[in-house]
C-alpha cells in the first residue's frame, strides 16, 4: 500500500545460493539495513543485464529474525528476460542493490476462509502467507500446481509445514489443477490469494466472475513478466517523431523506447497503473496483453497497450510491427 511503496535502495550481501530445481535457485541475502518482513512482501533487485543495471522484483520466501536475512528464489526459464540468469550467477560474498521489503500484496488476517493458489514459482509469493495463516489458526488451503514434481520448488517443505491443508496438483502425475472445480468449491467468505502465470490468473479470474464471488476477495500479484506467448523481438514505429525501435526478446517495450530516448510516462512497470499506455495506430501481428489494467473489451479492441509489460506477437512467418503514438 501507499505507505510502503517507495523504494529505498541499500546494499545486500549474498550469504547462500542453492539450486532447488533445475531452473530455480534459492538466494539468501543479508541486507545492510534489516527491516521486519510482512507476508506478501517482495524486494526489487538491481541486476546487470547486458552491462546495464535493470530492476527485477522477487517475493520474499522467508526471512530471518527482524529481516536480517531474506530468501528469494529465481526461475531461469527460456522466457526469462535475462534477470534470472544474473541472479543465478550470484555467489556467497557477492553484493547486490536491493530495496527494503515492499508489500503490494498484503495478507488480511480475519477472513472466514482462505485459498492460497500458487502456480509454479508463484509459491514464493504465498509461502509467507501460509505460514501466518497457520500460526493464527486460520481456515486455509494451500493449492500448489505445476507441470512436474522435480520442477516444483519447496514442495517437500510445504508438505511438511502444511500437511492436510496442502493440495498438490501435478500435471504429469495425472492430477492437473481444474480451476473451475477449485473456484466452484470455494465457500462464501473466502479470500483467494493467487500468484502464477497469466493463463492461470486469467482462468481463475474468469471462474471467479462467473460464480459472482466478490471481486475484491480475489487477490493477486503480478510482476508483469508472464505472457500468453514467449517473448520475441518486434519492431515499434512512432511516425509522429520518426522513431523506429527494435524491442529485443530480453527487454520490455518501455525499456527499448527509453534506451532510444523516447520520452515516455510510466509508473508501476508491472501493468497495473496504465500510465505507460500507448495508442496503437497499426499492427502487423497481434498484441500479447500482459497487463491487468485493461478490461477484456479494451484488450480485444487492440487500440491501446501498456508498453511496460505488453508485447507484440509476430504474424505467421513474419516479424511483428506495432505502429503507435505516445502522449
Amino acid at each position: 500500500m501507499a505507505t510502503s511503496h517507495a523504494a529505498v535502495w541499500q546494499r545486500a550481501t549474498v550469504v547462500d545460493s542453492t539450486a532447488l530445481t533445475d531452473d530455480i535457485r534459492r538466494i539468501v541475502l543479508a541486507p545492510d539495513h534489516p527491516a521486519k518482513v510482512d507476508a506478501g512482501a517482495h524486494i526489487d533487485v538491481r541486476v546487470p543485464i547486458g552491462g546495464v543495471l535493470d530492476r527485477r522484483s522477487y517475493s520474499v520466501v522467508d526471512a530471518g529474525p527482524d529481516g536480517r536475512t531474506l530468501a528469494i528464489s529465481a526461475l531461469d526459464s527460456p522466457r526469462s528476460r535475462g534477470g534470472a540468469r544474473a541472479m543465478h550467477a550470484l555467489r556467497p560474498g557477492d553484493t547486490v542493490e536491493i530495496t527494503q521489503p515492499i508489500v503490494d500484496f498484503p495478507l488480511r488476517v480475519g477472513a472466514a476462509h482462505y485459498v492460497l493458489l500458487a502456480g509454479g514459482i508463484g509459491i514464493t509469493a504465498v509461502m509467507g502467507m501460509a505460514r501466518v495463516l497457520r500460526s493464527v489458526g486460520a481456515d486455509y488451503t494451500l493449492v500448489y500446481a505445476g507441470r512436474s514434481r522435480p520442477a516444483l520448488a519447496y514442495v517437500e517443505h510445504v508438505q511438511n509445514a502444511h500437511g492436510d491443508r496442502l493440495r498438490l496438483h501435478i500435471t504429469d502425475e495425472g492430477n492437473p489443477l481444474d480451476v473451475t472445480e477449485l473456484v466452484g468449491g470455494v465457500e462464501p467468505g473466502t479470500e483467494l490469494y493467487l500468484c502464477g502465470p497469466i493463463r492461470l490468473m486469467d482462468a481463475v479470474r474468469r471462474a471467479w466472475i462467473e460464480r459472482e464471488l466478490p471481486y475484491p476477495d480475489l487477490r493477486f500479484e503480478t510482476f508483469g513478466n508472464s505472457g500468453w506467448f514467449a517473448p520475441e523481438d518486434f519492431v515499434v514505429r512512432i511516425p509522429r517523431i520518426g522513431a523506429e525501435v527494435t524491442v529485443r526478446a530480453t527487454e520490455t517495450m518501455l525499456e527499448a523506447l527509453e534506451a532510444a530516448e523516447v520520452d515516455l510516462m510510466f509508473d508501476c512497470r508491472k501493468g497495473e497503473c496504465g500510465l505507460c499506455e500507448v495508442r496503437v495506430l497499426d499492427l502487423d501481428g497481434d498484441i500479447d496483453h500482459r497487463d491487468v489494467f485493461y478490461s477484456e473489451r479494451q484488450k480485444d479492441s487492440r487500440g491501446t497497450m501498456c508498453c511496460c509489460v505488453s508485447r507484440a506477437v509476430a504474424p505467421p512467418g513474419g516479424t511483428a510491427v506495432v505502429t503507435i503514438d505516445i502522449s
Binding site: 498484503p106 493477486f220 500479484e221 508501476c268 497495473e272
Partner: peptide, 9 residues
Amino acid sequence: QETINPSAT
C-alpha cells in the same frame, strides 16, 4: 477505468 488496480488497498 474499467478495471481495478490489484494493489489498490
